[in-house]
Amino acid sequence: MGICEILHYDFVQRAILAGILIGAICSLLGVFLVLRRFSLIGDGLAHVTFGSVAVVLLLGISPFYVTLAALPIVIISSVVILKLTSTKRIPGDAAIGIVSSIGIAAGIILASLSGGYNIDLFSYLFGNILTVNQTELLLAFIFFIVVAATIIFFYNDLFALTFDEELAKTMGVKTDKINIILFMLTAVAAVLAMRVAGIMLVSAMLILPPLTALQLSISFRMTIIASLIFSVLSVISGIIISFLLNLPAGGTIVIINAALLLLVFGVGKISALQR
Protein backbone atom coordinates (compact mmCIF):
# COMPACT_ATOMS: atom_id res chain seq x y z
CA MET A 1 0.00 0.00 0.00
CA GLY A 2 1.49 3.37 -1.04
CA ILE A 3 1.53 6.62 0.91
CA CYS A 4 -1.06 8.21 -1.44
CA GLU A 5 -3.41 5.32 -0.84
CA ILE A 6 -3.01 5.58 2.92
CA LEU A 7 -3.79 9.27 2.84
CA HIS A 8 -7.13 8.56 1.17
CA TYR A 9 -8.52 7.04 4.34
CA ASP A 10 -10.64 9.46 6.39
CA PHE A 11 -9.35 8.12 9.71
CA VAL A 12 -5.72 8.51 8.58
CA GLN A 13 -6.35 12.10 7.49
CA ARG A 14 -8.01 12.78 10.84
CA ALA A 15 -5.16 11.11 12.70
CA ILE A 16 -2.49 13.10 10.86
CA LEU A 17 -4.36 16.37 11.34
CA ALA A 18 -4.94 15.72 15.05
CA GLY A 19 -1.36 14.49 15.43
CA ILE A 20 0.04 17.66 13.82
CA LEU A 21 -2.09 19.89 16.05
CA ILE A 22 -1.35 17.99 19.27
CA GLY A 23 2.34 17.60 18.39
CA ALA A 24 2.53 21.34 17.73
CA ILE A 25 0.82 22.14 21.05
CA CYS A 26 3.20 19.87 23.00
CA SER A 27 6.31 21.15 21.25
CA LEU A 28 5.38 24.80 21.84
CA LEU A 29 4.66 24.35 25.54
CA GLY A 30 7.57 21.93 25.91
CA VAL A 31 10.16 24.62 25.18
CA PHE A 32 9.08 26.59 28.26
CA LEU A 33 8.72 23.48 30.44
CA VAL A 34 12.10 21.98 29.52
CA LEU A 35 13.95 25.26 30.03
CA ARG A 36 12.24 25.78 33.39
CA ARG A 37 13.14 22.24 34.46
CA PHE A 38 9.54 21.11 34.56
CA SER A 39 10.14 18.37 31.98
CA LEU A 40 8.51 15.67 34.08
CA ILE A 41 5.26 17.53 34.57
CA GLY A 42 3.95 15.82 31.43
CA ASP A 43 4.65 12.45 33.03
CA GLY A 44 2.95 13.49 36.27
CA LEU A 45 -0.11 14.88 34.53
CA ALA A 46 -0.29 11.82 32.28
CA HIS A 47 -0.54 9.64 35.39
CA VAL A 48 -3.31 11.88 36.68
CA THR A 49 -4.95 11.50 33.27
CA PHE A 50 -4.88 7.72 33.84
CA GLY A 51 -6.83 8.26 37.07
CA SER A 52 -9.24 10.66 35.35
CA VAL A 53 -9.88 8.25 32.47
CA ALA A 54 -10.55 5.49 35.00
CA VAL A 55 -13.12 7.78 36.72
CA VAL A 56 -14.74 8.61 33.39
CA LEU A 57 -14.90 4.95 32.31
CA LEU A 58 -16.24 3.92 35.73
CA LEU A 59 -19.01 6.50 35.40
CA GLY A 60 -19.86 4.94 32.06
CA ILE A 61 -19.39 8.13 30.06
CA SER A 62 -19.30 7.47 26.31
CA PRO A 63 -15.71 6.92 25.03
CA PHE A 64 -16.57 9.70 22.57
CA TYR A 65 -16.29 12.24 25.39
CA VAL A 66 -13.57 10.66 27.53
CA THR A 67 -10.93 13.24 26.59
CA LEU A 68 -13.26 16.14 27.36
CA ALA A 69 -14.46 14.58 30.61
CA ALA A 70 -10.92 13.88 31.86
CA LEU A 71 -9.88 17.53 31.49
CA PRO A 72 -11.18 19.11 34.75
CA ILE A 73 -9.34 16.69 37.10
CA VAL A 74 -6.06 17.05 35.19
CA ILE A 75 -6.33 20.85 35.09
CA ILE A 76 -6.98 20.97 38.85
CA SER A 77 -4.00 18.65 39.42
CA SER A 78 -1.72 20.95 37.41
CA VAL A 79 -2.69 23.85 39.69
CA VAL A 80 -2.08 21.64 42.75
CA ILE A 81 1.45 20.83 41.47
CA LEU A 82 2.11 24.54 40.96
CA LYS A 83 0.84 25.45 44.43
CA LEU A 84 2.89 22.67 46.06
CA THR A 85 5.98 23.85 44.18
CA SER A 86 5.50 27.46 45.23
CA THR A 87 5.46 26.55 48.94
CA LYS A 88 9.29 26.27 48.61
CA ARG A 89 9.17 23.44 51.17
CA ILE A 90 8.41 20.90 48.47
CA PRO A 91 10.80 20.73 45.49
CA GLY A 92 9.18 20.82 42.04
CA ASP A 93 10.03 17.21 41.15
CA ALA A 94 8.64 15.96 44.48
CA ALA A 95 5.40 17.93 43.90
CA ILE A 96 5.04 16.25 40.51
CA GLY A 97 5.80 12.89 42.14
CA ILE A 98 3.10 13.35 44.81
CA VAL A 99 0.33 14.25 42.37
CA SER A 100 1.52 11.63 39.88
CA SER A 101 1.44 8.80 42.47
CA ILE A 102 -2.00 9.79 43.71
CA GLY A 103 -3.25 9.89 40.11
CA ILE A 104 -1.96 6.45 39.22
CA ALA A 105 -3.02 4.92 42.55
CA ALA A 106 -6.55 6.27 42.11
CA GLY A 107 -6.52 4.94 38.54
CA ILE A 108 -5.55 1.43 39.63
CA ILE A 109 -8.22 1.32 42.36
CA LEU A 110 -10.94 2.68 40.08
CA ALA A 111 -9.96 0.35 37.23
CA SER A 112 -10.19 -2.56 39.65
CA LEU A 113 -13.60 -1.37 40.87
CA SER A 114 -14.85 -1.20 37.29
CA GLY A 115 -13.94 -4.84 36.75
CA GLY A 116 -10.25 -4.72 35.93
CA TYR A 117 -8.30 -3.31 33.02
CA ASN A 118 -10.62 -3.30 30.06
CA ILE A 119 -9.69 -2.67 26.48
CA ASP A 120 -10.70 1.03 26.65
CA LEU A 121 -8.25 1.83 29.43
CA PHE A 122 -5.45 0.06 27.56
CA SER A 123 -6.10 2.19 24.48
CA TYR A 124 -5.50 5.27 26.64
CA LEU A 125 -2.40 3.79 28.26
CA PHE A 126 -0.68 3.18 24.95
CA GLY A 127 -2.52 5.61 22.71
CA ASN A 128 -4.22 5.07 19.39
CA ILE A 129 -4.14 8.11 17.19
CA LEU A 130 -5.96 6.26 14.42
CA THR A 131 -9.12 6.19 16.56
CA VAL A 132 -9.23 9.96 17.13
CA ASN A 133 -12.81 11.17 16.71
CA GLN A 134 -14.24 14.44 15.37
CA THR A 135 -14.77 15.88 18.87
CA GLU A 136 -11.13 15.32 19.74
CA LEU A 137 -9.96 16.78 16.43
CA LEU A 138 -12.09 19.88 17.03
CA LEU A 139 -10.80 20.10 20.62
CA ALA A 140 -7.21 19.84 19.35
CA PHE A 141 -7.83 22.57 16.78
CA ILE A 142 -9.43 24.96 19.28
CA PHE A 143 -6.71 24.27 21.81
CA PHE A 144 -3.94 24.79 19.24
CA ILE A 145 -5.38 28.25 18.53
CA VAL A 146 -5.56 28.96 22.28
CA VAL A 147 -1.93 27.88 22.85
CA ALA A 148 -0.58 29.76 19.82
CA ALA A 149 -2.50 32.91 20.80
CA THR A 150 -1.34 32.66 24.42
CA ILE A 151 2.31 32.30 23.38
CA ILE A 152 2.08 35.22 20.95
CA PHE A 153 0.21 37.43 23.44
CA PHE A 154 2.38 36.59 26.45
CA TYR A 155 5.62 36.02 24.53
CA ASN A 156 7.62 38.72 26.36
CA ASP A 157 6.35 37.58 29.76
CA LEU A 158 7.02 33.91 28.98
CA PHE A 159 10.50 34.73 27.70
CA ALA A 160 11.37 36.70 30.85
CA LEU A 161 9.85 34.06 33.14
CA THR A 162 11.76 31.28 31.37
CA PHE A 163 15.00 33.23 31.54
CA ASP A 164 14.79 34.13 35.22
CA GLU A 165 11.64 34.13 37.37
CA GLU A 166 12.97 36.60 39.96
CA LEU A 167 14.08 39.05 37.31
CA ALA A 168 10.74 38.68 35.55
CA LYS A 169 8.94 39.64 38.78
CA THR A 170 10.94 42.86 39.01
CA MET A 171 9.96 43.65 35.42
CA GLY A 172 6.31 43.58 36.45
CA VAL A 173 5.57 40.16 34.94
CA LYS A 174 2.68 38.56 36.80
CA THR A 175 4.63 35.37 37.30
CA ASP A 176 1.91 33.63 39.33
CA LYS A 177 -0.67 34.25 36.61
CA ILE A 178 1.65 33.18 33.78
CA ASN A 179 2.66 30.03 35.70
CA ILE A 180 -0.98 29.04 36.20
CA ILE A 181 -1.73 29.63 32.52
CA LEU A 182 1.32 27.57 31.48
CA PHE A 183 0.47 24.68 33.82
CA MET A 184 -3.20 24.62 32.85
CA LEU A 185 -2.33 24.59 29.16
CA THR A 186 0.11 21.76 29.85
CA ALA A 187 -2.67 19.83 31.58
CA VAL A 188 -4.87 20.08 28.47
CA ALA A 189 -1.89 19.17 26.27
CA ALA A 190 -1.22 16.07 28.40
CA VAL A 191 -4.85 14.91 28.02
CA LEU A 192 -4.77 15.45 24.26
CA ALA A 193 -1.32 13.86 23.84
CA MET A 194 -2.68 10.76 25.58
CA ARG A 195 -4.64 10.03 22.39
CA VAL A 196 -1.51 10.31 20.24
CA ALA A 197 1.22 8.66 22.27
CA GLY A 198 -0.64 7.11 25.19
CA ILE A 199 -0.36 7.98 28.87
CA MET A 200 3.02 6.20 29.08
CA LEU A 201 4.60 8.43 26.42
CA VAL A 202 2.97 11.85 26.92
CA SER A 203 6.10 13.38 28.44
CA ALA A 204 8.12 12.34 25.36
CA MET A 205 5.84 14.53 23.21
CA LEU A 206 6.55 17.47 25.53
CA ILE A 207 10.28 16.90 26.02
CA LEU A 208 11.88 15.43 22.88
CA PRO A 209 11.09 18.08 20.21
CA PRO A 210 12.25 21.02 22.40
CA LEU A 211 15.37 19.10 23.42
CA THR A 212 16.17 18.45 19.76
CA ALA A 213 15.65 22.13 18.93
CA LEU A 214 17.89 23.14 21.85
CA GLN A 215 20.77 21.16 20.31
CA LEU A 216 20.78 23.65 17.41
CA SER A 217 21.94 26.54 19.66
CA ILE A 218 19.75 29.09 17.93
CA SER A 219 17.75 32.05 19.25
CA PHE A 220 14.74 31.58 21.54
CA ARG A 221 12.23 32.41 18.83
CA MET A 222 13.91 30.03 16.36
CA THR A 223 14.09 27.30 19.02
CA ILE A 224 10.30 27.44 19.39
CA ILE A 225 9.86 27.21 15.60
CA ALA A 226 12.41 24.37 15.30
CA SER A 227 10.72 22.45 18.13
CA LEU A 228 7.39 22.74 16.31
CA ILE A 229 8.93 21.55 13.02
CA PHE A 230 10.62 18.52 14.65
CA SER A 231 7.39 17.56 16.37
CA VAL A 232 5.21 17.85 13.26
CA LEU A 233 7.79 15.94 11.17
CA SER A 234 7.90 13.06 13.64
CA VAL A 235 4.11 12.90 13.95
CA ILE A 236 3.51 12.76 10.17
CA SER A 237 6.32 10.26 9.50
CA GLY A 238 5.40 8.27 12.62
CA ILE A 239 1.76 7.83 11.62
CA ILE A 240 2.64 6.86 8.02
CA ILE A 241 5.42 4.43 9.04
CA SER A 242 3.28 2.86 11.75
CA PHE A 243 0.48 2.32 9.24
CA LEU A 244 2.84 0.86 6.61
CA LEU A 245 4.64 -1.45 9.05
CA ASN A 246 1.63 -2.18 11.26
CA LEU A 247 3.32 -0.71 14.36
CA PRO A 248 1.74 1.25 17.24
CA ALA A 249 1.62 4.92 16.16
CA GLY A 250 2.46 6.42 19.58
CA GLY A 251 5.61 4.37 20.04
CA THR A 252 6.71 4.99 16.44
CA ILE A 253 6.27 8.76 16.81
CA VAL A 254 8.32 8.78 20.00
CA ILE A 255 11.09 6.61 18.49
CA ILE A 256 11.30 8.97 15.50
CA ASN A 257 11.47 11.92 17.90
CA ALA A 258 14.31 10.20 19.77
CA ALA A 259 16.09 9.37 16.49
CA LEU A 260 15.86 13.04 15.45
CA LEU A 261 17.34 14.08 18.79
CA LEU A 262 20.24 11.64 18.40
CA LEU A 263 20.81 12.74 14.80
CA VAL A 264 20.87 16.47 15.62
CA PHE A 265 22.99 15.86 18.72
CA GLY A 266 25.44 13.72 16.70
CA VAL A 267 25.70 16.22 13.84
CA GLY A 268 26.29 18.99 16.38
CA LYS A 269 29.09 17.04 18.06
CA ILE A 270 30.76 16.19 14.73
CA SER A 271 30.62 19.79 13.50
CA ALA A 272 32.00 20.99 16.87
CA LEU A 273 34.93 18.58 16.50
CA GLN A 274 35.62 19.81 12.98
CA ARG A 275 35.83 23.44 14.12
Binding site: F159, D164, L167, M171, A213, S217, S219, F220, M222
Partner: peptide, 24 residues
Amino acid sequence: YLPQRLSALNAHFPGTVAEIVQMG
Protein backbone atom coordinates in the same frame (compact mmCIF):
# COMPACT_ATOMS: atom_id res chain seq x y z
CA TYR B 1 17.21 45.93 38.52
CA LEU B 2 20.46 44.05 38.10
CA PRO B 3 20.70 41.06 40.43
CA GLN B 4 23.92 39.86 42.03
CA ARG B 5 23.71 36.80 39.84
CA LEU B 6 20.91 35.32 37.85
CA SER B 7 19.15 32.85 40.10
CA ALA B 8 19.60 29.88 37.82
CA LEU B 9 21.05 30.87 34.48
CA ASN B 10 20.76 27.78 32.33
CA ALA B 11 23.94 27.53 30.25
CA HIS B 12 21.79 26.09 27.45
CA PHE B 13 19.24 28.89 27.50
CA PRO B 14 18.66 29.66 23.82
CA GLY B 15 18.40 33.45 24.15
CA THR B 16 20.71 35.69 22.17
CA VAL B 17 22.28 38.73 23.81
CA ALA B 18 20.01 40.99 21.73
CA GLU B 19 16.91 39.04 22.83
CA ILE B 20 17.87 39.19 26.49
CA VAL B 21 18.89 42.85 26.49
CA GLN B 22 15.54 43.74 24.87
CA MET B 23 13.57 41.52 27.26
CA GLY B 24 10.35 43.32 28.16
